[in-house]
Design a protein around this nucleic acid. Sequence first.
DNA 1: TCAAATTAGTTTGGTATTTAACTATCAAGT
DNA 2: ACTTGATAGTTAAATACCAAACTAATTTGA
Lengths: 153, 153
Amino acid sequence: MTTQIKNSTKTELAVEFGRSMNELRTHTRQQIQLKIKEHGINITFEMLEVMGCLWRKDGINQQEIANLTLRDKSGMTYLLDNLVKRKLVKRVEDANDRRNKMIYLTKDGHELREQLNPWVAEVYEMASEGVDVHNLQNGMLLLSEMINNLKKG
Amino acid sequence: MTTQIKNSTKTELAVEFGRSMNELRTHTRQQIQLKIKEHGINITFEMLEVMGCLWRKDGINQQEIANLTLRDKSGMTYLLDNLVKRKLVKRVEDANDRRNKMIYLTKDGHELREQLNPWVAEVYEMASEGVDVHNLQNGMLLLSEMINNLKKG
DNA sequence: TCAAATTAGTTTGGTATTTAACTATCAAGT
DNA sequence: ACTTGATAGTTAAATACCAAACTAATTTGA
C-alpha cells in the first residue's frame, strides 16, 4: 500500500518533470529564435541544430546528422534541402559509397558560425546563470538514467 | 581567465543538458506512441497532451489549453479540429463571453482516460525506475531555476 | 459613451516531423 | 556470382508548429 502511494507520487513527479523539460526547451528555443530575428538571419532553430553538428565536424552524411539531432532521416532530406537553398551547406555524393551524400559547409555556412555562436552561447549562459555546476552534472546523470531506462523497454 | 574557462565549460554543459532533455523527450514520446499503437487507438502524442489537460479540468477555453501545453493558440485550432473529428471533445460557445470557445470532453473522451491512463503511467514508471525521488526533485528545482532565468531575459 | 487597447479564435504561408513505401547501393555468406 | 539482408536517401501523405495578419467580442479609460 505504502509503496503504491509512493510509486504513484514518483510517477506524477516524473510526469511533471517531463512537462518542465518541455517548458525549458520552449523558452530556450524562443530566446534563440529571438536572437536570430534580432540579427535578421533567415534560419530556423532546427536548421541551427543541423549547423551545430557540421560546425563540430564538417563532412558527414545525412543519416549521421539525423542520429545526432534525434530526427528521422526523411526529415533530414527536407531540412537539408532548405539549408542548400539558403546556400549554407552543399551535398556531395560519396565516391567510396554512392549511397551516402556527404554534407559540407559552404563559405557562408562557415561564416555564420562566427556570427551566431556568441549569441547562442549567451542564451545558454543566461539559462544556467547562478546554477551550480554540480547540480547541472547531477541533472545530466538523472537524464542519462531515465534515457537508459526507456531504451531498455 | 579561470572564470572564463569555467563559464565556457558550464555553458557547454548546459548545451549538452539541452540535448539530453530532447533525447529523453523523444524516447518518452516514442514509448507512449508505441503503447497507443499497440492498443490500436487513433490519437497522437500531441492530442494526448491536450486530453491530459481536459482530464484534469474539463471545460476550459482554447487559449487556456494552449498555455498549459505550451503551444501557440493558432496550433490549437487545428489540433482541436482533429479531436472534434475523432469525437473526443466538443466546442461550446461561451454565453458569458462570446469570444471564448469552451472545450468539453465527450463520453468517448471520458472513457479514453480510463483506457489510456494506466499505459501512460507505465511509461513514466519505466522512465523513473530505480531513480531516487530526491534526485527527481532536485532535477525539478534545476529546471525551474533555468526556466526562470530565461523568463527574465 | 465612445475610441483605443486587449483578448479569443481563425486563416494563411512557410517550415518541421513521422510513417510507410520506394529506389539504389553495398555487404555477407553460400 | 547470386541471393539475401542491410543501409542511405527520397517521396508522399498526414500531422504539427509558429508567426503574422485578420475578425469579432470585450474591456478600459478619458
